[in-house]
Design a protein around this nucleic acid. Structure first.
Length: 443
RNA sequence: GCGACUGUAGCUCAGCGGUAGAGCUCUCGGUUGUGGUCCGAGCGGUCGCGGGUUCGAACCCCGUCAGUCGCCCCA
Protein backbone atom coordinates (compact mmCIF):
# COMPACT_ATOMS: atom_id res chain seq x y z
CA UNK A 1 0.00 0.00 0.00
CA UNK A 2 2.75 2.39 0.98
CA UNK A 3 4.72 1.43 -2.11
CA UNK A 4 1.80 2.20 -4.37
CA UNK A 5 1.43 5.64 -2.91
CA UNK A 6 5.01 6.35 -3.94
CA UNK A 7 4.02 6.16 -7.59
CA UNK A 8 4.60 9.39 -9.46
CA UNK A 9 1.46 11.48 -9.33
CA UNK A 10 -0.75 10.59 -12.25
CA UNK A 11 -3.36 12.86 -13.69
CA UNK A 12 -6.58 11.97 -11.96
CA UNK A 13 -9.19 10.59 -14.30
CA UNK A 14 -12.87 10.73 -13.53
CA UNK A 15 -14.25 7.41 -14.61
CA UNK A 16 -17.61 8.02 -16.18
CA UNK A 17 -20.36 5.52 -15.63
CA UNK A 18 -23.40 5.05 -17.79
CA UNK A 19 -26.45 6.78 -16.37
CA UNK A 20 -29.06 4.11 -16.15
CA UNK A 21 -32.13 4.80 -18.24
CA UNK A 22 -30.49 7.52 -20.33
CA UNK A 23 -29.36 5.58 -23.38
CA UNK A 24 -26.83 6.53 -26.03
CA UNK A 25 -25.88 4.64 -29.18
CA UNK A 26 -22.80 3.99 -31.26
CA UNK A 27 -22.51 5.75 -34.63
CA UNK A 28 -23.57 2.69 -36.63
CA UNK A 29 -26.65 2.34 -34.42
CA UNK A 30 -27.43 6.02 -34.61
CA UNK A 31 -27.40 5.82 -38.41
CA UNK A 32 -30.10 3.16 -38.22
CA UNK A 33 -32.02 5.23 -35.69
CA UNK A 34 -31.96 8.23 -38.05
CA UNK A 35 -33.16 6.06 -40.91
CA UNK A 36 -36.09 4.84 -38.80
CA UNK A 37 -36.96 8.37 -37.67
CA UNK A 38 -36.90 9.57 -41.29
CA UNK A 39 -39.22 6.76 -42.29
CA UNK A 40 -41.63 7.62 -39.50
CA UNK A 41 -41.61 11.31 -40.35
CA UNK A 42 -42.24 10.60 -44.03
CA UNK A 43 -45.13 8.27 -43.25
CA UNK A 44 -46.75 10.73 -40.84
CA UNK A 45 -46.49 13.51 -43.40
CA UNK A 46 -47.87 11.30 -46.15
CA UNK A 47 -51.15 11.34 -44.19
CA UNK A 48 -51.04 15.12 -43.82
CA UNK A 49 -49.96 15.39 -40.20
CA UNK A 50 -48.12 18.65 -39.45
CA UNK A 51 -45.08 18.77 -37.22
CA UNK A 52 -44.99 20.72 -34.00
CA UNK A 53 -42.61 20.78 -31.07
CA UNK A 54 -43.43 21.82 -27.55
CA UNK A 55 -40.90 22.74 -24.85
CA UNK A 56 -39.30 19.94 -22.87
CA UNK A 57 -40.78 21.50 -19.76
CA UNK A 58 -44.31 22.31 -18.75
CA UNK A 59 -45.76 23.79 -15.61
CA UNK A 60 -46.35 21.02 -13.16
CA UNK A 61 -49.97 22.08 -12.92
CA UNK A 62 -50.38 21.42 -16.64
CA UNK A 63 -48.84 17.97 -16.40
CA UNK A 64 -51.08 17.09 -13.50
CA UNK A 65 -54.20 18.53 -15.10
CA UNK A 66 -55.68 15.09 -15.40
CA UNK A 67 -54.96 14.33 -11.79
CA UNK A 68 -52.45 11.67 -12.62
CA UNK A 69 -49.94 11.96 -9.82
CA UNK A 70 -48.53 8.46 -9.67
CA UNK A 71 -46.15 9.16 -12.55
CA UNK A 72 -42.59 9.92 -11.58
CA UNK A 73 -41.96 13.41 -12.89
CA UNK A 74 -38.57 15.11 -13.09
CA UNK A 75 -38.77 18.60 -11.64
CA UNK A 76 -36.62 21.39 -13.06
CA UNK A 77 -34.72 23.60 -10.68
CA UNK A 78 -31.82 26.01 -10.90
CA UNK A 79 -28.71 25.20 -8.87
CA UNK A 80 -28.41 28.79 -7.67
CA UNK A 81 -31.97 29.71 -7.23
CA UNK A 82 -32.97 33.00 -5.71
CA UNK A 83 -34.64 33.27 -2.37
CA UNK A 84 -37.95 34.35 -3.87
CA UNK A 85 -37.99 31.73 -6.60
CA UNK A 86 -40.59 29.73 -4.77
CA UNK A 87 -43.20 32.14 -6.11
CA UNK A 88 -42.51 31.06 -9.67
CA UNK A 89 -44.52 28.38 -11.34
CA UNK A 90 -42.76 25.09 -10.85
CA UNK A 91 -41.53 23.48 -14.03
CA UNK A 92 -41.06 19.81 -14.84
CA UNK A 93 -39.92 17.72 -17.81
CA UNK A 94 -42.89 16.42 -19.76
CA UNK A 95 -43.58 12.70 -19.41
CA UNK A 96 -45.60 12.34 -22.60
CA UNK A 97 -46.69 14.46 -25.56
CA UNK A 98 -50.43 14.08 -25.28
CA UNK A 99 -50.95 16.38 -22.34
CA UNK A 100 -48.65 19.11 -23.77
CA UNK A 101 -50.49 18.74 -27.09
CA UNK A 102 -53.84 19.29 -25.40
CA UNK A 103 -52.38 22.37 -23.70
CA UNK A 104 -50.96 23.58 -27.05
CA UNK A 105 -54.26 23.13 -28.82
CA UNK A 106 -56.16 25.02 -26.16
CA UNK A 107 -53.60 27.81 -26.07
CA UNK A 108 -53.44 28.34 -29.85
CA UNK A 109 -57.09 27.55 -30.40
CA UNK A 110 -57.82 30.65 -32.50
CA UNK A 111 -54.89 30.13 -34.84
CA UNK A 112 -55.42 26.46 -35.61
CA UNK A 113 -57.55 24.82 -38.27
CA UNK A 114 -59.66 21.92 -37.15
CA UNK A 115 -59.63 18.98 -37.24
CA UNK A 116 -56.08 19.67 -36.13
CA UNK A 117 -53.72 16.85 -37.16
CA UNK A 118 -50.22 17.02 -35.80
CA UNK A 119 -47.23 14.79 -35.25
CA UNK A 120 -44.58 15.22 -32.61
CA UNK A 121 -41.30 13.35 -32.23
CA UNK A 122 -39.51 14.38 -29.06
CA UNK A 123 -37.84 13.06 -25.96
CA UNK A 124 -39.88 12.56 -22.83
CA UNK A 125 -38.77 11.72 -19.30
CA UNK A 126 -40.11 9.39 -16.65
CA UNK A 127 -38.37 8.62 -13.38
CA UNK A 128 -39.16 4.93 -13.36
CA UNK A 129 -36.86 2.00 -12.83
CA UNK A 130 -35.19 1.06 -16.12
CA UNK A 131 -35.25 -2.41 -17.62
CA UNK A 132 -35.46 -3.92 -21.09
CA UNK A 133 -37.76 -1.67 -23.06
CA UNK A 134 -38.03 0.89 -20.32
CA UNK A 135 -35.80 3.95 -20.19
CA UNK A 136 -36.04 7.16 -18.22
CA UNK A 137 -35.31 9.33 -21.26
CA UNK A 138 -36.85 8.22 -24.53
CA UNK A 139 -38.35 9.30 -27.81
CA UNK A 140 -42.01 9.09 -28.54
CA UNK A 141 -43.45 9.58 -32.00
CA UNK A 142 -47.03 10.74 -31.61
CA UNK A 143 -49.82 11.47 -34.01
CA UNK A 144 -53.04 12.99 -32.72
CA UNK A 145 -56.13 14.65 -34.07
CA UNK A 146 -58.26 17.06 -32.11
CA UNK A 147 -61.54 18.49 -33.36
CA UNK A 148 -64.22 20.80 -32.04
CA UNK A 149 -67.33 19.18 -30.54
CA UNK A 150 -67.24 15.95 -32.54
CA UNK A 151 -64.47 13.81 -33.94
CA UNK A 152 -65.47 11.20 -36.55
CA UNK A 153 -64.56 7.60 -35.85
CA UNK A 154 -62.72 7.51 -39.16
CA UNK A 155 -59.83 9.15 -37.33
CA UNK A 156 -59.70 6.37 -34.77
CA UNK A 157 -59.19 4.01 -37.67
CA UNK A 158 -56.66 6.27 -39.34
CA UNK A 159 -54.45 6.33 -36.24
CA UNK A 160 -54.22 2.56 -36.34
CA UNK A 161 -53.62 2.50 -40.08
CA UNK A 162 -50.79 5.02 -39.94
CA UNK A 163 -49.14 3.36 -36.96
CA UNK A 164 -49.34 -0.04 -38.60
CA UNK A 165 -47.88 1.29 -41.83
CA UNK A 166 -44.99 2.86 -39.92
CA UNK A 167 -44.15 -0.28 -37.97
CA UNK A 168 -44.62 -2.62 -40.91
CA UNK A 169 -42.32 -0.46 -42.99
CA UNK A 170 -39.48 -0.76 -40.50
CA UNK A 171 -38.98 -4.43 -41.39
CA UNK A 172 -38.77 -5.66 -37.83
CA UNK A 173 -40.82 -8.80 -38.16
CA UNK A 174 -44.52 -9.24 -37.62
CA UNK A 175 -46.37 -6.50 -35.81
CA UNK A 176 -49.85 -6.86 -34.40
CA UNK A 177 -52.07 -4.09 -33.19
CA UNK A 178 -54.90 -4.92 -30.82
CA UNK A 179 -57.87 -2.65 -30.42
CA UNK A 180 -60.66 -2.37 -27.94
CA UNK A 181 -63.06 0.24 -26.65
CA UNK A 182 -63.17 1.18 -23.01
CA UNK A 183 -66.89 1.69 -23.14
CA UNK A 184 -67.39 -2.06 -23.53
CA UNK A 185 -65.85 -3.09 -20.22
CA UNK A 186 -66.93 -0.01 -18.29
CA UNK A 187 -70.44 -0.49 -19.68
CA UNK A 188 -70.47 -4.05 -18.41
CA UNK A 189 -69.16 -2.95 -15.01
CA UNK A 190 -71.77 -0.21 -14.79
CA UNK A 191 -74.46 -2.80 -15.46
CA UNK A 192 -73.09 -4.56 -12.37
CA UNK A 193 -73.26 -1.34 -10.34
CA UNK A 194 -69.49 -1.08 -10.14
CA UNK A 195 -68.77 2.64 -10.02
CA UNK A 196 -64.99 2.68 -10.08
CA UNK A 197 -63.78 0.62 -13.02
CA UNK A 198 -60.08 1.22 -12.34
CA UNK A 199 -59.28 -1.71 -9.99
CA UNK A 200 -61.00 -4.23 -12.25
CA UNK A 201 -59.40 -2.62 -15.29
CA UNK A 202 -55.94 -3.09 -13.80
CA UNK A 203 -56.61 -6.76 -13.22
CA UNK A 204 -58.02 -7.37 -16.70
CA UNK A 205 -54.91 -5.72 -18.08
CA UNK A 206 -52.91 -8.68 -16.75
CA UNK A 207 -55.11 -11.36 -18.27
CA UNK A 208 -52.38 -12.51 -20.64
CA UNK A 209 -49.61 -12.39 -18.09
CA UNK A 210 -51.20 -14.35 -15.25
CA UNK A 211 -52.97 -17.70 -15.12
CA UNK A 212 -56.75 -17.37 -15.27
CA UNK A 213 -57.07 -18.78 -11.75
CA UNK A 214 -55.08 -15.91 -10.39
CA UNK A 215 -57.17 -13.40 -12.31
CA UNK A 216 -60.26 -14.91 -10.75
CA UNK A 217 -58.73 -14.65 -7.29
CA UNK A 218 -57.80 -11.02 -7.81
CA UNK A 219 -61.33 -10.24 -8.97
CA UNK A 220 -62.72 -12.03 -5.94
CA UNK A 221 -60.70 -9.67 -3.78
CA UNK A 222 -62.66 -6.86 -5.43
CA UNK A 223 -65.80 -8.40 -3.93
CA UNK A 224 -67.27 -9.58 -7.20
CA UNK A 225 -69.62 -12.53 -7.38
CA UNK A 226 -68.71 -15.68 -9.26
CA UNK A 227 -71.23 -14.86 -11.96
CA UNK A 228 -69.85 -11.38 -12.40
CA UNK A 229 -66.31 -12.70 -12.57
CA UNK A 230 -67.30 -15.25 -15.19
CA UNK A 231 -68.99 -12.56 -17.29
CA UNK A 232 -66.04 -10.20 -17.06
CA UNK A 233 -63.50 -12.86 -17.95
CA UNK A 234 -65.56 -14.16 -20.82
CA UNK A 235 -65.79 -10.67 -22.24
CA UNK A 236 -62.12 -9.92 -21.75
CA UNK A 237 -61.10 -13.12 -23.48
CA UNK A 238 -62.91 -12.12 -26.65
CA UNK A 239 -60.39 -11.72 -29.37
CA UNK A 240 -60.50 -11.72 -33.12
CA UNK A 241 -62.49 -10.14 -35.90
CA UNK A 242 -65.62 -8.05 -36.15
CA UNK A 243 -67.67 -11.23 -36.37
CA UNK A 244 -66.46 -12.29 -32.92
CA UNK A 245 -67.92 -9.08 -31.52
CA UNK A 246 -71.37 -9.85 -32.91
CA UNK A 247 -71.70 -12.74 -30.49
CA UNK A 248 -71.57 -10.40 -27.50
CA UNK A 249 -74.84 -9.41 -25.88
CA UNK A 250 -74.64 -5.75 -24.79
CA UNK A 251 -75.87 -5.23 -21.21
CA UNK A 252 -76.62 -1.53 -21.59
CA UNK A 253 -76.39 1.42 -24.01
CA UNK A 254 -72.82 2.23 -23.16
CA UNK A 255 -71.64 -1.28 -23.87
CA UNK A 256 -73.56 -1.32 -27.14
CA UNK A 257 -72.05 2.00 -28.13
CA UNK A 258 -68.59 0.65 -27.45
CA UNK A 259 -69.19 -2.47 -29.50
CA UNK A 260 -70.66 -0.51 -32.40
CA UNK A 261 -67.76 1.94 -32.43
CA UNK A 262 -65.21 -0.83 -32.36
CA UNK A 263 -66.96 -2.63 -35.21
CA UNK A 264 -66.98 0.54 -37.28
CA UNK A 265 -63.29 1.13 -36.71
CA UNK A 266 -62.48 -2.44 -37.70
CA UNK A 267 -64.58 -1.96 -40.84
CA UNK A 268 -62.47 1.04 -41.66
CA UNK A 269 -59.32 -1.07 -41.43
CA UNK A 270 -60.44 -3.94 -43.62
CA UNK A 271 -57.88 -2.99 -46.29
CA UNK A 272 -55.05 -4.16 -44.00
CA UNK A 273 -53.85 -7.77 -43.57
CA UNK A 274 -56.19 -9.70 -41.28
CA UNK A 275 -53.51 -10.47 -38.68
CA UNK A 276 -52.30 -6.86 -38.60
CA UNK A 277 -55.09 -5.43 -36.51
CA UNK A 278 -57.41 -7.46 -34.33
CA UNK A 279 -60.06 -6.78 -31.73
CA UNK A 280 -59.02 -7.75 -28.22
CA UNK A 281 -61.32 -6.84 -25.37
CA UNK A 282 -58.66 -7.39 -22.74
CA UNK A 283 -56.98 -4.18 -23.89
CA UNK A 284 -58.00 -1.45 -21.50
CA UNK A 285 -54.86 0.64 -20.87
CA UNK A 286 -53.80 2.06 -17.57
CA UNK A 287 -54.06 5.76 -18.37
CA UNK A 288 -57.23 7.23 -17.01
CA UNK A 289 -57.90 9.90 -19.65
CA UNK A 290 -58.90 7.44 -22.37
CA UNK A 291 -62.64 7.30 -22.95
CA UNK A 292 -63.18 5.17 -26.06
CA UNK A 293 -61.07 3.27 -28.54
CA UNK A 294 -57.72 2.07 -27.15
CA UNK A 295 -54.73 0.56 -28.94
CA UNK A 296 -51.78 -1.61 -28.04
CA UNK A 297 -49.14 -3.11 -30.30
CA UNK A 298 -46.92 -6.16 -29.92
CA UNK A 299 -43.85 -7.38 -31.75
CA UNK A 300 -44.73 -10.98 -32.55
CA UNK A 301 -41.20 -11.96 -33.53
CA UNK A 302 -39.44 -10.73 -30.42
CA UNK A 303 -39.96 -13.32 -27.69
CA UNK A 304 -37.93 -11.47 -25.08
CA UNK A 305 -40.28 -8.53 -24.98
CA UNK A 306 -44.05 -8.70 -24.86
CA UNK A 307 -44.86 -5.12 -23.91
CA UNK A 308 -46.53 -2.64 -26.19
CA UNK A 309 -44.40 -0.58 -28.56
CA UNK A 310 -47.21 1.62 -29.77
CA UNK A 311 -50.27 2.58 -27.78
CA UNK A 312 -52.91 5.22 -27.58
CA UNK A 313 -56.57 5.91 -27.62
CA UNK A 314 -59.38 8.40 -27.68
CA UNK A 315 -59.74 11.08 -25.06
CA UNK A 316 -62.85 13.20 -25.07
CA UNK A 317 -62.06 15.62 -22.27
CA UNK A 318 -58.32 16.17 -22.12
CA UNK A 319 -58.16 19.64 -23.71
CA UNK A 320 -61.16 20.85 -21.76
CA UNK A 321 -58.87 21.10 -18.74
CA UNK A 322 -57.29 24.09 -20.46
CA UNK A 323 -60.16 25.74 -22.34
CA UNK A 324 -63.88 25.95 -21.93
CA UNK A 325 -64.68 24.03 -25.10
CA UNK A 326 -65.37 20.49 -26.07
CA UNK A 327 -62.27 19.22 -27.90
CA UNK A 328 -62.30 15.46 -28.36
CA UNK A 329 -59.11 13.86 -29.62
CA UNK A 330 -57.61 10.57 -30.59
CA UNK A 331 -53.94 9.70 -30.86
CA UNK A 332 -51.34 7.05 -30.86
CA UNK A 333 -47.77 7.03 -29.68
CA UNK A 334 -44.89 4.95 -30.95
CA UNK A 335 -42.50 4.18 -28.12
CA UNK A 336 -39.59 4.81 -30.39
CA UNK A 337 -36.69 4.25 -28.02
CA UNK A 338 -38.37 1.19 -26.57
CA UNK A 339 -38.86 -0.20 -30.06
CA UNK A 340 -35.35 0.64 -31.15
CA UNK A 341 -33.63 -0.62 -28.01
CA UNK A 342 -35.62 -3.85 -27.83
CA UNK A 343 -34.73 -4.68 -31.43
CA UNK A 344 -31.14 -3.55 -30.85
CA UNK A 345 -30.73 -5.89 -27.91
CA UNK A 346 -32.98 -8.81 -28.80
CA UNK A 347 -33.16 -8.97 -32.59
CA UNK A 348 -30.05 -7.20 -33.82
CA UNK A 349 -30.34 -9.26 -37.01
CA UNK A 350 -33.44 -7.24 -37.90
CA UNK A 351 -31.63 -3.93 -37.59
CA UNK A 352 -29.48 -4.18 -40.70
CA UNK A 353 -26.55 -2.49 -39.06
CA UNK A 354 -24.57 -0.73 -41.75
CA UNK A 355 -21.43 1.41 -41.83
CA UNK A 356 -20.14 3.47 -38.93
CA UNK A 357 -20.27 6.71 -40.89
CA UNK A 358 -22.15 8.22 -43.81
CA UNK A 359 -19.00 8.45 -45.95
CA UNK A 360 -19.24 7.20 -49.53
CA UNK A 361 -15.67 7.81 -50.58
CA UNK A 362 -12.34 7.99 -48.80
CA UNK A 363 -9.87 10.00 -50.86
CA UNK A 364 -6.22 9.17 -50.40
CA UNK A 365 -2.90 9.93 -51.98
CA UNK A 366 0.48 8.43 -51.35
CA UNK A 367 2.24 11.47 -52.73
CA UNK A 368 2.34 14.53 -50.49
CA UNK A 369 2.82 16.74 -53.56
CA UNK A 370 -0.65 15.78 -54.77
CA UNK A 371 -2.42 17.21 -51.71
CA UNK A 372 -4.05 20.00 -53.68
CA UNK A 373 -5.38 17.65 -56.35
CA UNK A 374 -6.68 15.45 -53.54
CA UNK A 375 -8.59 18.29 -51.92
CA UNK A 376 -10.01 19.49 -55.23
CA UNK A 377 -11.11 15.94 -56.04
CA UNK A 378 -12.92 15.65 -52.70
CA UNK A 379 -14.59 19.00 -53.23
CA UNK A 380 -15.76 18.06 -56.72
CA UNK A 381 -17.25 14.82 -55.47
CA UNK A 382 -19.01 16.56 -52.57
CA UNK A 383 -20.58 19.05 -54.95
CA UNK A 384 -21.89 16.11 -56.94
CA UNK A 385 -23.66 14.86 -53.83
CA UNK A 386 -21.28 12.28 -52.42
CA UNK A 387 -20.10 12.18 -48.81
CA UNK A 388 -16.33 12.39 -48.93
CA UNK A 389 -13.51 12.14 -46.42
CA UNK A 390 -9.85 12.83 -47.10
CA UNK A 391 -7.36 10.58 -45.36
CA UNK A 392 -4.05 12.19 -44.54
CA UNK A 393 -0.88 10.77 -46.05
CA UNK A 394 0.85 8.81 -43.32
CA UNK A 395 3.89 6.66 -42.90
CA UNK A 396 2.13 3.33 -42.73
CA UNK A 397 0.50 2.79 -46.05
CA UNK A 398 -2.19 0.32 -45.03
CA UNK A 399 -3.62 2.54 -42.32
CA UNK A 400 -6.04 4.26 -44.65
CA UNK A 401 -7.21 0.88 -45.84
CA UNK A 402 -7.91 -0.39 -42.35
CA UNK A 403 -9.69 2.85 -41.59
CA UNK A 404 -12.03 2.48 -44.57
CA UNK A 405 -12.57 -1.20 -43.82
CA UNK A 406 -13.38 -0.68 -40.16
CA UNK A 407 -15.76 2.18 -40.79
CA UNK A 408 -17.51 0.48 -43.67
CA UNK A 409 -16.62 3.11 -46.27
CA UNK A 410 -17.53 1.53 -49.61
CA UNK A 411 -15.01 3.25 -51.90
CA UNK A 412 -11.37 4.31 -51.69
CA UNK A 413 -10.27 6.93 -54.17
CA UNK A 414 -6.58 6.98 -55.06
CA UNK A 415 -5.09 10.15 -56.45
CA UNK A 416 -2.09 8.88 -58.37
CA UNK A 417 -1.28 11.99 -60.38
CA UNK A 418 -2.73 15.37 -61.35
CA UNK A 419 -5.08 13.65 -63.77
CA UNK A 420 -4.74 10.04 -62.78
CA UNK A 421 -7.37 8.61 -60.46
CA UNK A 422 -8.31 5.13 -59.39
CA UNK A 423 -11.30 3.95 -57.37
CA UNK A 424 -11.42 0.77 -55.37
CA UNK A 425 -14.75 -0.84 -54.61
CA UNK A 426 -14.27 -2.36 -51.18
CA UNK A 427 -17.01 -4.93 -51.60
CA UNK A 428 -15.87 -6.36 -54.91
CA UNK A 429 -12.18 -5.49 -54.66
CA UNK A 430 -12.40 -4.06 -58.18
CA UNK A 431 -10.13 -1.17 -58.97
CA UNK A 432 -10.49 0.99 -62.01
CA UNK A 433 -9.36 4.30 -63.48
CA UNK A 434 -11.83 7.16 -63.31
CA UNK A 435 -12.16 10.90 -62.81
CA UNK A 436 -14.09 13.02 -60.30
CA UNK A 437 -16.50 14.51 -62.84
CA UNK A 438 -17.87 11.27 -64.26
CA UNK A 439 -17.53 8.71 -61.52
CA UNK A 440 -20.62 7.05 -60.07
CA UNK A 441 -21.26 4.33 -57.55
CA UNK A 442 -21.36 0.79 -58.94
CA UNK A 443 -24.86 -0.59 -59.18
C1' G B 1 -40.83 2.40 -4.01
C1' C B 2 -40.00 -3.31 -3.04
C1' G B 3 -37.17 -8.04 -4.11
C1' A B 4 -33.02 -11.19 -6.46
C1' C B 5 -28.31 -11.13 -8.63
C1' U B 6 -23.71 -8.64 -10.30
C1' G B 7 -19.42 -4.75 -9.72
C1' U B 8 -11.44 -6.88 -11.59
C1' A B 9 -7.68 -3.09 -17.91
C1' G B 10 -11.31 0.99 -22.91
C1' C B 11 -14.47 -3.96 -24.01
C1' U B 12 -15.52 -9.48 -22.73
C1' C B 13 -14.14 -12.12 -18.65
C1' A B 14 -10.69 -15.58 -15.51
C1' G B 15 -8.61 -15.45 -10.54
C1' C B 16 -12.13 -16.47 -4.96
C1' G B 17 -6.96 -15.71 1.55
C1' G B 18 -0.25 -15.50 -0.18
C1' U B 19 3.70 -10.61 -5.81
C1' A B 20 -3.09 -8.34 -10.35
C1' G B 21 -4.09 -12.16 -15.35
C1' A B 22 -5.91 -13.60 -20.57
C1' G B 23 -8.27 -12.43 -25.20
C1' C B 24 -9.89 -8.30 -28.10
C1' U B 25 -9.00 -2.99 -28.92
C1' C B 26 -5.14 0.75 -29.07
C1' U B 27 0.32 2.50 -29.98
C1' C B 28 5.12 1.21 -31.95
C1' G B 29 8.46 -2.10 -34.70
C1' G B 30 9.11 -6.06 -38.19
C1' U B 31 6.90 -9.17 -42.16
C1' U B 32 3.99 -8.64 -46.44
C1' G B 33 5.21 -4.93 -50.57
C1' U B 34 -1.21 -2.77 -54.31
C1' G B 35 -1.84 -3.73 -49.15
C1' G B 36 -7.34 -6.61 -45.31
C1' U B 37 -2.42 -11.56 -43.17
C1' C B 38 1.25 -12.93 -39.76
C1' C B 39 5.15 -12.11 -35.75
C1' G B 40 7.09 -9.26 -31.65
C1' A B 41 7.00 -5.41 -28.07
C1' G B 42 4.52 -1.63 -25.42
C1' C B 43 0.48 1.31 -23.19
C1' G B 44 -3.33 0.36 -19.91
C1' G B 45 -5.97 -1.58 -13.11
C1' U B 46 -7.05 3.13 -5.62
C1' C B 47 -9.96 -5.37 -8.29
C1' G B 48 -17.09 0.25 -7.33
C1' C B 49 -16.44 2.99 -2.50
C1' G B 50 -16.04 2.89 3.13
C1' G B 51 -15.26 0.10 7.39
C1' G B 52 -14.19 -4.74 9.84
C1' U B 53 -11.76 -9.84 10.47
C1' U B 54 -6.56 -11.52 9.42
C1' C B 55 0.53 -11.71 9.86
C1' G B 56 -1.67 -10.88 4.97
C1' A B 57 -8.17 -9.31 1.55
C1' A B 58 -9.80 -8.64 -5.42
C1' C B 59 -11.23 -13.06 -2.51
C1' C B 60 -14.37 -13.63 4.07
C1' C B 61 -18.01 -10.18 7.05
C1' C B 62 -20.90 -5.46 7.52
C1' G B 63 -22.36 -1.02 5.30
C1' U B 64 -22.86 2.01 1.04
C1' C B 65 -23.12 3.35 -4.07
C1' A B 66 -23.86 1.80 -9.04
C1' G B 67 -25.60 -1.64 -12.68
C1' U B 68 -28.70 -5.84 -14.49
C1' C B 69 -33.16 -8.57 -14.03
C1' G B 70 -38.14 -9.15 -11.81
C1' C B 71 -42.51 -6.48 -9.27
C1' C B 72 -45.32 -1.86 -9.50
C1' C B 73 -46.36 1.05 -13.60
C1' C B 74 -45.92 2.16 -18.53
C1' A B 75 -43.87 3.77 -24.62
Amino acid sequence: MSEKSKKPNKPSVYKPKPISGFPEWLPEERLVELKWLDHIRRTFESYGFASIETPSVEEIDVLLAKGEVDKEIYVLERLHKDEDDDKDARLALHFDQTVPFARYTAQHFNELTFPFKRYQMQRVWRGERPQLGRQREFYQCDIDVINIDNLPLAFDAEMAAVAYEVLDGLDIGRVQMRISNRKILTGLLESMDINDPVPVTRIIDKIEKLPIQQIENLLKEEKLSDNQIADIIQLAKTKGTKQDLDAIEPKNDKMKEGLDELAEVLDNLSHLPSEAIIADLSIVRGLDYYTGIVYETQLLDVEQFTGSVCSGGRYDNLASSFINKKLPGVGISIGFTRLFDVIRQSRRDLMNIGPKCPTDVLVYTEDKDLKETTNITAQTLRKRGFNVEVYDTVKKWEKHFKYAKNKGIPYIWYVNGPDTHEVKNMATDDKKETNPNDWNKDE
